[in-house]
């Protein structure tokens, strides 16, 4: 059953210390900045966060890491020119890093949502990131066994949501949102537009409402009106 939250603080209020949280976005695109900032304000700590990166600049995930709330991050590409909050915590030994090839990260999240127990992937075979993992040769090709990443919460950003929780995204801001929405017990989506039932053509729904627990409207501020989102 979908809840429409009045604001981002209310939407994230029950996330407890120590939770595993999937956070959407690829760098800044698709990052649910307002939900993350609410998490910073709520004071929740000891989090395990799953994201492609480890924060950019000062806002969103970077602020959460900078505030010392993240115990462990699972990501593919932590080091960037503006990842100084992560870099400092990592060098000080204050954050644990699990580095995962990007496709394996996406598939580990997808399989969690799809009820798969584990899967064999060719990505990473023979590299340091497969060390200690079970391997198998299938039809002459080598594979590594990888396990799903299930989470307590997912925080994602979509372009438009309706009162059934159906979501559509916009351009490359879609990235991890649809798979993360499926892999958490509670998925919280911030949307730029909230429309009534029937406000989204069922043929173009990307994330069906069954995957979404809470929606919160976060209008685009002072940004030029984007063209029609799909």
């Amino acid at each position: 059953m979908l809840t429409i939250s009045d604001n981002a603080m209310e939407a994230v209020a029950d996330i407890p210390d120590g939770a595993t949280v999937l956070i959407g976005g690829f760098g800044p695109a698709g990052q649910p900045v307002e939900l993350i900032e609410a998490l910073v304000q709520s004071g929740t700590s000891g989090l395990t966060v799953v994201n492609n990166n480890a924060g950019n600049g000062e806002v969103g995930l970077a602020a959460l890491i900078g505030a010392g709330r993240v115990r462990k991050i699972i990501c593919s590409f932590p080091r960037q020119h503006d990842s100084h909050h992560f870099d400092a915590k990592y060098r000080a030994g204050q954050i644990e890093l699990e580095l995962v090839p990007q496709g394996n990260l996406a598939e580990r999240i997808r399989t969690a949502g799809a009820g798969i127990g584990a899967f064999f992937t060719p990505t990473g075979y023979g590299t340091p990131l497969a060390e200690g993992k079970e391997v198998r040769e299938i039809d002459g090709r080598h594979y590594v066994l990888e396990y799903p990443i299930r989470a307590d919460y997912a925080l994602i950003k979509a372009y438009r949501g309706d009162e059934a929780g159906n979501l559509v995204y916009r351009k490359t801001a879609r990235n991890f949102g649809p798979v993360m929405a499926t892999a958490a017990r509670t998925t919280i989506a911030q949307v730029h537009e909230l429309v009534p039932l029937g406000g989204i053509d069922p043929e173009v729904v990307v994330t069906p409402g069954v995957y979404v627990s809470r929606l919160v409207l976060v209008p685009r501020e002072a940004a030029p009106e984007p063209e029609e989102g799909q």
């Binding site: 598939e107 490359t172 991890f176």
Partner: peptide
């Protein structure tokens, strides 16, 4: 800012472009 490449540089879309989520993108590759 919703339309970037893998290096996080803003890019453009060409006629016939399509968007898909990360698991599909890497399934396409793998």
């Amino acid at each position: 800012l919703d339309l970037i490449n893998a290096g996080k540089i803003p890019v453009t879309e060409l006629p016939g472009a399509s968007y898909f989520h990360h698991a599909d993108s890497f399934a396409m590759m793998r």
